[in-house]
């Protein structure tokens, strides 16, 4: 990691502090640069969708934010506090495990392949984090889990193991599991990409209801252009590890300015 963290603030201050802030973030795999000096702010309660060709760094944005990847340059802030770094002697240094665990509590994530725990029922999946990590009493965790499973329409299947559930059902349980931790930011990483077409609707409906009900901040990577357009407050088109163009969904999808955006959208729309 670069030792240039001196130019980043120890804390974000003032009015309108973004919930998520990428400052000059770079991520490399060997010679390949997947995030290239990325700047991205997401306001509290905002729903931001990331689109772009494969290899443009979309998923890496979410994975860096979940601390599944370590970044090679820049700083990520969550809720005004540095996530990837922490303050030590008036300077920002790389975050230790303790800091990461404190900050991770603010973030929840849903994965393309659900990643439900196969040895636990749907209900147990949703209770695991609250009981083991947050230390909630079991009764309370069960109540919270059942409520969320009800919200995603999975009450009846709460005693089933993931192997007995369809992809769409698994993904809905995975959303409930992430919500049970009461995160401030939710990340959706291509959550419909591994689903059969007829199951996509049940998952997008759940996400739609989250947008309606909650003041959650959400970042979503998706290939569902129609859904992105309908649901997002803002759409970011990624290219080569940074944002090529961003704006309101109507603007991006109807009157994109950049040529790459136009090419990408016409290619995608043609394929559909």
């Amino acid at each position: 990691m670069n030792d240039d963290t001196g130019r980043y603030p120890l804390k974000l201050e003032g009015d309108n502090i973004p919930m998520v802030s990428f400052r000059n973030v770079t991520k490399k795999y060997g010679d390949l640069t997947v995030l290239d000096r990325l700047d991205l702010d997401v306001a509290p309660g905002e729903m931001v969708t990331i689109i772009g060709p494969s290899g443009s760094g979309k998923t890496t944005v979410l994975r860096s934010l979940m601390t599944l990847e370590t970044i090679d340059g820049g700083v990520i802030y969550v809720d005004g506090e540095p996530l990837t770094h922490m303050e030590k002697g008036g300077k920002l240094v790389r975050a230790n495990q303790r800091h990461l665990r404190r900050m991770r509590a603010k973030i929840g994530m849903c994965f393309q392949h659900f990643n439900l725990f196969p040895h636990m029922t749907a209900l147990e999946n949703c209770m695991e984090g609250p009981v083991q990590v947050l230390g909630l009493p079991k009764d309370e965790a069960r109540e919270r889990a059942l409520e969320l499973l009800g919200m995603v329409g999975m009450s009846e299947k709460s005693d089933q193991h993931p192997s007995r559930l369809s992809g769409g059902q698994q993904q809905r349980v995975a959303i409930a599991r992430a919500l049970a931790m009461r995160p401030s930011v939710m990340l959706f990483d291509e959550v419909t990409s591994a689903l059969d077409p007829e199951m996509i609707g049940e998952v997008t409906n759940v996400i739609r209801s989250l947008v309606d009900q909650h003041s959650l901040t959400m970042l979503m990577v998706t290939h569902q252009m129609g859904f992105a357009r309908e649901i997002s407050d803002r759409v970011c088109f990624f290219y080569g590890g940074s944002i090529e163009e961003q704006g309101a969904p109507a603007t991006i999808f109807e009157t994109p300015e950049k040529e790459r955006t136009q090419q990408f959208l016409s290619a995608v729309l043609q394929a559909n």
């Binding site: 979940m66 991770r104 994965f111 990643n115 439900l116 725990f117 984090g129 083991q132 931790m181």
Partner: peptide, 12 residues
Amino acid sequence: GQWEAALALNMS
């Protein structure tokens, strides 16, 4: 993905 999901739930 199992490691990652457990990490996303903030498990030690």
